[in-house]
Design a protein around this nucleic acid. Structure first.
Length: 587
RNA sequence: GCACCCAUAGCUCAACUGGAUAGAGCAACGCACUUCUAAUGCGUAGGUUGCAGGUUCGAGUCCUGCUGGGUGUGCCA
């Protein structure tokens, strides 16, 4: 039983003794104290019960304290307006640490009812190389996938690539204007980007060219041989480029079911919707309208213009006959429900698309998929130095590969100056690890909804709350074991783990919070909570490491401290692994 | 206009979902290295949590109204 559960139970019994019946044990509210001066856990039950019982909260707290049979689990004190503070004894902490050390899962809980969860993330447009804006979905998605899977769920990671949309019409048009085969051989992604930019600029200037691009897409969607051939070549080249980045980021997928994967079902799908009166013609397009069941304000199919509520339909077939992302998105969730048997679908996409998802989820309900729980996990915008969003269409975004290269270069300079590694090859490898993971960690340590300014210098800063800080704590802990005589680490006895010093106790306190922190990430899809926790853990380890000599101590103390180093290094490695970050053994 | 999101130290972010004197890092200043790897630790300084009300024993957190910023708003995704 966990410590909070034990304390809750003991409090429950004590409350009965004092003559106060608590119907809901949640009201007892044992919480970790947010300030260590107040102990490890606190209960506000005396304050909450006092008023209805017509009692003084402090007196009530004193009675409860008298009645509770705490044994040597914790020390109790009363403070402030009536807080009951529990300070766990060193004996309790030692036992907690031993339990965690002998648990292969390090205290991370497993869910009782595993679910099948589809995570839809990254989803780049394949005609263009990934730019910095793609980092958020990619990194958050991989992290959520790892955590969800660790908690015992079945996770299906799906890269819903944009391989069928308007941008393909543009690339195809430009391709036919003149593709540079030599460049395509040399640097395929750059050549595709050139084609896209060419078409983008041309169609901005000339409405007729825009129409030609649209037409190329319609031809592709209708199976035109030449366009299909071009499409196949683009797709192969793009995927190769994307995979290089994913390998570098240590991101992987179970499926790459992009928009094109659903092409064959779009026609029948749209016919079905029209036949069942879920969609109707409007201005030449086929649209899904409001069902008028909720107030306009809460209706995703309504919009207010000049004080008047008007229809705001979801277009599922354009007047040129082409399908758009709304159509493929409907086909996609049907596939996920029917073929993947998903209980939940998490879609990790920019918050700017939230309106679209409100409509999409409503469509799912109307189609009878109300048991499929779909969530749009939104994130904020990456801003330029001017405080304005980096423009997606302008084509002047830093490419992700370049950002990673720059980060590695910056890391290489620091590694060159500070590393204890022997060879240049090892240093290059370490710089790659630090550079790439600094970019990832920067992303994961921000709240997902906050906009943040893209600042390469800050991103690769290697001091303070960064990936290298965490790496360093891990490396310090592991280096101890390299100094040990052969086989000594195997002989460590878990029973000998026993903490007494404040720095040791604080370290254990942080360590035992690991499982809870992992779990809470999924409450609101917040990897930054785990990132913050790991930084705090590392901080308490560095403090401990400075305050408590390990190898210079003797006997049981030495063994106990070695075990603490072992446990800490395991938690840090495991925690970073859940964030999608690999650790170096030396640096 | 309307809808949604955001506002916490100079900067970047926390605050365990309503608890005590709002915490970290960066930047600034001071102290500690022939080291268990100083990519560190210890300390100083930095706040009317955008403003005004309300609910509550108790509000950064919930409610209302403002202010400021961002995003979206029919055939892009």
């Amino acid at each position: 039983m966990t410590i909070p559960a034990q304390l809750t139970e003991k409090l429950h019994v004590a409350l009965k003794k004092v003559g106060l019946e608590v119907s809901d044990s949640k009201r007892i509210q044992i919480k970790p104290a947010d300030d260590l001066r107040f102990g490890d856990y606190q209960s506000t039950v005396a304050m909450m019960m006092a008023k209805p019982a017509g009692r003084n909260p402090r007196e009530l707290a004193a009675e409860i304290m008298e009645a509770i049979e705490i044994g040597d689990l914790a020390e109790i004190s009363i403070a402030g307006p009536g807080f009951l503070n529990f300070t766990l004894t060193p004996k309790t902490w030692s036992a907690q640490a031993r339990t965690q050390l002998s648990d292969p899962k390090l205290g991370v809980p497993t869910v009782e009812d595993p679910e099948t969860i589809v995570i839809d993330f990254s989803a780049p447009n394949v005609a263009k190389p990934m730019h910095i804006g793609h980092i958020r979905s990619t990194i958050i998605g991989e992290c959520l996938g790892r955590i969800t899977s660790r908690l015992g769920h079945k996770v299906i990671k799906d890269n819903h690539i944009g391989d069928w949309g308007t941008q393909f019409g543009m690339v195809t048009w430009a391709w036919k204007q003149g593709v540079d085969e030599a460049a395509l051989d040399e640097a395929p992604l750059q050549e595709l980007l050139r084609l896209y930019r060419h078409a983008s600029e041309a169609s901005k200037k000339d409405e007729a060219i825009k129409d030609l691009c649209r037409h190329e897409l319609v031809k592709l969607q209708q199976g035109d041989a030449e366009n299909t051939e071009i499409w196949n070549r683009c797709l192969a080249l793009s995927k190769k480029g994307l995979n290089e980045i994913y390998d570098r980021l240590d991101v992987s997928f179970d499926h790459w079911l992009g928009e094109s994967a659903y092409n064959d079902v779009l026609g029948p799908l749209v016919e079905r919707l029209e036949k069942e009166n879920l969609a109707r013609q409007s201005d030449g397009a086929l649209c899904i309208f409001s069902d008028e069941k909720v107030k306009p304000k809460a209706d995703p199919f309504k919009i207010n213009r000049d004080g008047e509520w008007q229809d705001f339909p979801m277009i599922i077939r354009k007047k040129d006959g082409g399908f758009n992302y709304a159509t493929t998105d409907i086909a996609t969730f049907e596939h996920r429900a029917n073929e993947f048997h998903a209980d939940k679908v998490w879609i990790i996409v920019d918050i700017r698309q939230s309106g679209h998802f409100n409509q999409l989820f409503e469509v799912a309900n109307r189609l009878g998929y109300d048991r499929l729980e779909m969530t749009h996990i939104a994130f904020g915008t990456i801003l330029g130095k001017d405080g304005k969003p980096l423009k997606t269409r302008a084509g002047d975004l830093p490419q992700l590969a370049d950002v990673l290269d720059d980060a590695v270069k910056a890391a290489r300079a620091v590694v060159g100056a500070k590393s204890h590694l022997d060879t240049e090859e090892e240093k290059d490898e370490l710089a790659e690890l630090i550079g790439v993971n600094s970019v990832k960690f920067t992303e994961l340590s921000h709240h997902r909804l906050s906009d943040y300014t893209f600042d390469l210098e800050k991103m690769v800063a290697l001091e303070g709350d960064t990936a290298p800080y965490l790496f360093y704590s891990y490396v310090r802990a592991r280096s101890i074991f390299r100094k040990l005589e052969e086989g000594a680490s195997e002989q460590l006895q878990i029973e000998n783990l026993n903490v007494t010093e404040p720095a040791e106790i604080h370290l254990v306190r942080m360590l035992t919070r690991y499982g809870d922190n992992v779990r809470t990430v999924l409450d609101d899809f917040r990897p930054n909570l785990l990132a913050t926790y790991l930084l705090e853990l590392a901080r308490s380890f560095h403090s401990y490491f400075e305050a408590c000599p390990v190898l210079k101590s003797e006997g049981q103390t030495r063994e106990s401290r070695l075990l603490l180093c072992d446990l800490t290094s395991r938690v840090i490695k495991d925690g970073l692994g859940l964030l999608g970050i690999d650790v170096p053994e030396r640096m």
